[in-house]
Simulated assay, not measured.
Amino acid sequence: MPVTLPSCGVYERPEDAHRLFEGYDPRRALFLDRDGVINADHGYVHRPEDTEWIPGVFNLCRVAIDVGALIIVVTNQAGIARGYYSEQQFLDYTGWVHGQFASHEIVLQATCYCPHHPDAPDPALRLCSCRKPLPGMILEAARRYRIDLGASALLGDKPWDVQAGQAAGVGLNLRFDPNAMAEPGVVRTMQEAGQVLHRFFE
């Protein structure tokens, strides 16, 4: 019999779980990586006091909101698998992040997270179907929220973010790198990302 690999976890704030946009079915979405896109990647960030928002990320999210797209975070969380913090600590922190966005009138529909890693001390956390560059988190979100992946966009800061989006069939896959040379598929500021997203979502 085929082996079923573990899939991702999904966090939703209870007060936001029902706030799906009406009139956009199937829906479009903006998929965001977390560390390096939403917050600066200081390494295994899981506490509010270690959080530094990427400049312009809230305005970027408003571009998606203005066209009725859902905003969904898709994040590898090797820190859980490695034992640097518990899954509950991650969920508590994620709830805080969702609350911070809500204070800017931005609903993060969900955070899909992969708690697995090939080097995890626990063998049960080594294999999965969701760790990017695998597309499992994106496909789970598409199933859950009836997302039209071809009409959706993804922004990540690592090649495996883009690879996951491409494997899932996401229509626009961008890599955020403030230090990159100008090249197709790469944006260097959130303002530039917003402009590309605006053209794509028109």
Rank of each mutant, 00 (worst) to 15 (best):
A151V: 00
I80F: 11
I72N: 12
L154C: 04
G99Q: 03
C128L: 01
K132V: 08
P121R: 12
H116F: 15
A110E: 01
C114V: 03
C112P: 04
G99C: 09
A69W: 09
R82E: 05
A124W: 04
A81C: 09
M137C: 06
Q77P: 14
A78R: 14
E140H: 14
I71Y: 05
P135T: 09
V107G: 10
G79H: 12
A69D: 06
K132D: 02
D92Q: 14
P135V: 14
C114R: 02
A124I: 08
D122G: 14
L149P: 00
S103V: 00
N76W: 02
A141D: 02
H116Y: 15
D122H: 02
C128V: 06
Q109I: 04
L139R: 10
A81I: 11
G79I: 10
Y84N: 02
L155P: 07
M137P: 02
I138M: 06
L149W: 07
P118N: 06
L149I: 03
I106N: 06
G79S: 08
C112R: 01
L127M: 12
Y113I: 14
P115H: 08
P133K: 10
V107C: 00
A120H: 01
P118E: 09
A142I: 07
S129K: 11
Y85S: 10
C128R: 03
P121V: 13
A69K: 01
F101R: 06
A78L: 08
S152T: 13
Q89S: 11
A81Q: 03
F90R: 00
G99V: 02
Q88R: 15
Q100D: 06
Y145P: 07
R146H: 15
Y113L: 10
P123E: 11
A69N: 08
Q88K: 15
A124N: 14
L154E: 09
Y93C: 00
W96I: 12
L139G: 02
T75I: 06
I71F: 04
L155K: 13
I138A: 03
I80T: 09
A102G: 10
A153C: 10
D148S: 13
P115K: 13
A142C: 03
T111Y: 01
A120S: 09
Y84P: 01
I106E: 11
S129A: 14
S103W: 00
I71N: 04
I138N: 05
A110K: 08
G150H: 11
Q100A: 08
A153G: 04
C128F: 07
H98M: 15
I72G: 11
S152P: 04
Y84S: 08
Q100E: 14
A153T: 04
K132H: 02
L127E: 15
L127Y: 12
R82F: 07
Y84L: 08
I80A: 03
C130V: 07
Y85V: 10
Q89R: 09
H104Y: 11
Q109K: 11
R144L: 15
G68F: 08
I138Y: 02
T111G: 08
P115Y: 12
N76D: 03
F90P: 05
L108A: 00
A110T: 03
I147G: 07
D148P: 04
G68C: 05
P133I: 14
A153I: 03
L154G: 00
Y145E: 07
C114K: 05
Q109R: 12
